[in-house]
């Protein structure tokens, strides 16, 4: 199934792939990392002025890393705002995704968290450093192939 946004993007010649609709009826599109910057600007101009949420997940061990953006349009007097979900897949070895902080300001801390947990490097980030783990942590904790070192636990369970 493809929705209006997909048709509109095809009309404007942007490379993407539709991933169907999720259970809430939000259209999901997949964009390549190298096209993401221009597509983000185009979506902002189209009217999606609010990045509702940005998250990231690990698709499979040895697979890709996904960075997910939920965009919506905030305007007055609208009961059901338009929403779209964009997924950008990055290779595991060198995950670099263009940074959209310059377009939607709420991406700042959220992308730092994606960097901290999964190691996705966002280009052109002013302060890309760890936000949840201690700064000297080694490793990306939420990757599926992450093994935590055998730290001492405070108390043995009886």
């Amino acid at each position: 199934m493809q929705g209006r946004l997909f048709a509109w993007l095809v009309k404007h010649g942007l490379v993407h792939r539709s991933l169907g609709f999720d259970y809430q009826g939000i259209e999901t599109l997949q964009i390549k990392p190298k096209d993401w910057h221009s597509t983000a600007v185009i979506l902002y101009v189209y009217g999606y002025n609010y990045l509702r949420s940005q998250c990231a997940y690990d698709v499979a061990p040895g697979g890709l890393l996904a960075s997910v953006y939920y965009l919506t349009r905030i305007e007055y007097g609208v009961d059901q705002p338009e929403e779209v979900c964009i997924k950008v897949f990055a290779p595991r070895r060198n995950p670099r995704i263009p940074f959209v902080f310059w377009i939607w300001k709420s991406a700042d801390f959220q992308e730092r968290e994606s960097y901290d947990m999964l190691g996705i490097c966002y280009e052109a980030h002013p302060r890309l450093k760890r936000i949840l783990m201690p700064e000297t942590w080694i490793g990306w904790p939420l990757r599926k192939d992450y093994i935590a070192p055998n730290f001492y636990e405070i108390q043995d369970t009886h």
Binding site: P134, T136, W137, I138, P149, N150, F151, Y152
Partner: peptide, 17 residues
Amino acid sequence: APLTEYTLRLIGSDVEH
């Protein structure tokens, strides 16, 4: 190894074990 709290924590955990 780099002198960070992470490394010291690894050493401390090994001593505790």
